[in-house]
Design a protein around this nucleic acid. Structure first.
Lengths: 218, 218
DNA sequence: ACCTGAACACCGTTCAAGT
DNA sequence: ACCTGAACACCGTTCAAGT
């Protein structure tokens, strides 16, 4: 990592590291949509085209930022019990995504998770096998757990950034008001409580239920 | 719907309907990222600004297209048995999203599902209650099912649009090749079979497992 | 090898003006 | 009421040229 610069002197020229670090900073402060090659160039003090000498295109830059984020992820000791370990890794994974919600959008566009994050996949597969599954079953179970987690992150991130500013009354209430409680009896029964119930929902509880369905019966 | 134009003569002027229909067409043919106000104006034969007389902004236009899609959704008769009904609605929902994968990205940005699609939510809640849950439990279970479904659509859509063109060897294979089978024993055990296993995964099977965990024990 | 300048082909949206 | 033209403040990227 620090092979040639023993002096703490600021590295003035461009470099992949500096570009990726600043890109990360912009994204962290203002979201992915705020990152543009031109803006990044301005902030780093060059022309847009200088950047293209260090990264192939914007897509590669985003992948590099993702990888940098994954490298900094904490890797605390995990519980011995396989199911507890499973839950712990999944919660770490969800936490990581919620701290960097833009990653989900990139993953959704077909990117694959980078080398620095595979240990999570390995850990999940390992825990599933330790719960009594074959590797093949574990592969399938992993996909189900990942689907659930990705969806939860998507929904939770959306709820956080959009504090009802376009629907002052909540979804349930406005739909029931529009269509009447006769056609929507069950939604109707939730009027007034949906917000509270939604706030009470936890990833952990949902995950436990998913695991109840996925893991072999004890 | 057809109140004033009994003649089949083409409606020449602009109108919300025409704008929304053409926007939908562009998205269907080339994806959301192909839709721009300027492109739409060109194709409809006006200036970009003429559009703003019929829709507030691009966001509203997208919401209108979403609503138009929801209106055209099939609503076939559903099974009597509550669990079967649940599965049927969820599969309809998933099918609908896979046919219009761009909707997921918009929903992810905080948009709420429009009036023409609420019947699905109502049907899911109703089936859950018919399975023996309270409305409150049904609300929570709905969120878990929705998380799973949204995630599955995201992953499936990504796999379809990106037929490995940036990773000729599959994820598992390339990661194991890079990091070695000692650090990734379980991923290592899947080398050569991941592609096939992935192709074998079905939403239906995953959903059944999720339901096993979510529904009250029979 | 690394960087610059000008250009190409785009964006969403505002604002003042026309009929 | 409905539409136009010009403008503002942006994009990602290519290409030829400079040091």
């Amino acid at each position: 990592m620090s092979t040639r610069s023993s002096t703490p002197g600021r590295q003035r020229g461009l470099s992949r590291r500096r570009i990726v670090a600043l890109a990360h900073e912009i994204i962290a402060r203002e979201g992915v949509e705020a990152l543009s090659m031109r803006r990044l160039a301005r902030e780093v003090g060059t022309t847009p085209m200088a950047l293209y000498h260090h990264v192939r295109d914007k897509d590669e830059l985003l992948a590099l930022v993702m990888e940098a984020v994954a490298e900094d992820l904490p890797r605390p000791p995990l519980p011995e019990d396989p199911r507890e370990r499973l839950v712990a890794v999944c919660e770490l994974m969800r936490e990581a995504f919620l701290q960097h919600p833009w990653v989900v959008a990139i993953l959704a566009r077909g990117r694959l998770v980078g080398p620095s994050a595979v240990w999570m996949t390995e850990e999940i597969l390992g825990s599933l096998v330790a719960c009594g599954m074959t590797v093949e079953e574990a592969f399938t179970a992993h996909r189900t757990i990942w689907n659930f987690t990705a969806g939860d992150v998507m929904v939770t991130a959306a709820l956080r950034t959009e504090p009802e500013d376009r629907s002052p009354t909540h979804f349930v209430e406005s739909q029931v008001a529009r269509q009447g409680a006769e056609t929507l009896p069950h939604l109707g029964a939730l009027v007034g409580r949906s917000r509270e119930l939604e706030a009470r929902y936890t990833y952990r509880a949902g995950l436990e239920q998913v695991l109840d369905g996925v893991l072999p019966r004890r």
